[in-house]
Design a protein around this nucleic acid. Structure first.
Length: 463
RNA sequence: GGCCAGGUAGCCAAGCGGCAAGGCAGCGGUCUGCAAAAUCGCUAUUCACCGGUUCAAUUCCGGUCCUGGCCUCCA
């Protein structure tokens, strides 16, 4: 039984979808005005684990991720570079896909929808809101009338009766009836405009997610995710405009991912603690270790990113892969040990039940670590069969559909390296250990680590 | 100021009324020609602090301190 913490009710709730075993989910994606930082990437990894686990559990996932390629920042960037909007955002869209590919975030079975390709859909929602009297036009811009929506604030749990029109609130350059009203459509100010039935201009910030979500998932859908900072105003406003346009509930479950800190502080460019995936990889970080680190803290807890914790993550990922390679390489000649099968089932149950409980990744991993411990012990005691190893290997591969931390197996090795390994083995056999150690050091410099086992030497690559 | 999340060993991190999971790092033993890997053992009388409820609290209640977030365009 799947349970998730719903921001709307502030409670963990049993997850029940509109259609049985089908999840319609909308996940907030990037605004493509800059390279993604690791805080953004944490959110995408959270969404990836969620998506993959749902599929692992037998659900059909219908998912949309937006790419916001029109807003103040993208326009400012395009102006600054003196290029078209598309030309400007293309660079960051490509970088985004490159980043998520490296972090093994899935891209198949997801509709990536671009705001600039859905302007007509946005316009039609705005038209409906105007017809119903929930939106008004002022100086060529169109605003949503918040006083028309009694449920305003139900997601963020903010009390708007107290909000005052002050310096920070009334910062908008446009005229509106109430400081709280938000803009649906911005009247033409520059070249970045569309000609539409509601005038020439461009969409406001919140309308694109509403339009794209409802276009692909329907007027009411199951799940919407994003970072906690999106709760207000972005998601609150999405609810307001959708529910007033359709008269139906917009989204059933809202899931939000906490922020990431770096060395206990908010990440910011001025503090010099701003990490992008690119900058970490340049320092030699392993993208799989980054993925592991970003997923092991529960998504609703703040995650403190440090370089030390990244080293720890790297060691853990290496151990995980060592174990996988070990059970692939072992060639035991023993009859089947039923206790291994039982441990595999136990580990899988722990894994599944932990993730079903609001994605408790740490607990899920602990279940697999316990299995590793048990299997390693059995290998040491020579009490595990080939069949048992297959069971453990299959389980590891199965959970890795969600985790994505196993390195691809079937690494190849050059013939000359293989020759060196054989040469060293001959030296060892004749007792010439100084030659053997010399060759082992040469191999180490080439990135090959040797392990002598009863059935001969075993090699692995570093890094 | 209002609202929200969090503070568990050197570090990361579960648990959330009944003797404190797991991982990384460290130390000692086994194995090994030496390593590596693996393995065994050790590493929190204590869960930010102070009160309260209870037979029993890291877990519930009240207060305090610290960290971070939101309160109109930042995942």
């Amino acid at each position: 039984m799947l349970r998730f913490f719903n921001t709307l009710t502030r409670k963990k709730e049993v997850f029940e979808t509109i259609e049985d075993k089908i999840v319609k989910m909308y996940t907030c994606g990037p605004t493509v005005y800059d390279f993604a930082h690791i805080g953004n990437l944490r959110a995408y990894i959270f969404e990836d684990i969620l998506h993959r686990f749902l599929e692992y559990s037998g659900w059909t996932v219908k998912r949309v991720m937006n790419i916001t390629d029109i807003d103040d920042k993208t326009i400012a960037g395009a102006k600054k570079d003196g290029v078209s909007l598309n030309r400007f955002t293309e660079k960051y869209i490509n970088a985004f896909f490159e980043d998520i590919r490296k972090l093994r975030i899935k891209i198949d079975n997801i509709i990536f929808s671009r705001a600039t390709e859905h302007v007509p859909e946005m316009v039609s929602i705005i038209k409906i809101l105007m017809e119903k009297g929930y939106a008004y036009k002022k100086e060529n811009s169109i605003y949503f009338r918040i006083s028309a929506f009694p449920g305003y604030g139900k997601l963020s749990h903010l009390d708007f009766s107290e909000i005052k029109t002050g310096a920070s609130v009334d910062a908008d350059e446009y005229e509106k009836e109430s400081a709280r009203d938000f803009v649906l459509w911005k009247g033409e100010k520059d070249d970045f405009s569309w000609d539409t039935e509601i005038g020439r201009g461009r969409p406001g910030w919140h309308i694109e997610c509403s339009a794209m979500g409802m276009k692909y998932l329907g007027e009411t859908f199951d799940m919407h995710t994003g970072g906690v900072d999106n709760i207000f105003p972005h998601h609150e406003n999405e609810i307001a405009q959708c529910e007033m346009a359709t008269g139906k509930p917009f989204v059933r479950y809202w899931l939000h991912c906490e922020h990431l800190l770096v060395n206990g502080e908010k990440m910011s460019k001025s503090k010099g603690n701003f990490y992008t995936l690119h900058s970490l990889l340049e320092k030699g970080a392993d993208p799989v270790a980054i993925r592991y680190l970003l997923m092991t803290t529960h998504y609703r807890d703040p995650l403190n990113f440090t370089e030390k914790s990244l080293v720890q993550a790297k060691n853990t990922v290496d151990r995980w892969n060592d174990f996988y390679k070990r059970i692939k390489d072992a060639r035991p000649d023993v009859k089947k040990n039923d206790s291994i099968s039982k441990e595999c089932i136990k580990a899988e149950n722990t894994f599944r039940e932990a993730l079903e409980d609001d994605l408790n990744v740490s607990k899920a991993l602990a279940g697999i670590f316990e299995l590793m411990h048990f299997v390693n012990n059995s290998i040491a005691e020579n009490n595990i069969s080939h069949e048992n190893l297959n069971e453990a290997g299959n389980l590891l591969e199965k959970v890795d559909y969600v985790l994505q931390i196993l390195k691809p197996s079937g690494e190849t090795i050059e013939p000359e390296i293989l020759g060196l390994i054989e040469e060293r083995e001959q030296a060892r056999k004749t007792g010439d250990f100084s030659s053997a150690d010399k060759i082992r050091n040469i191999l180490r410099e080439k990135g090959i680590i040797l392990e002598d086992t009863p059935s001969g030497p075993r090699w692995k690559k570093t890094g």
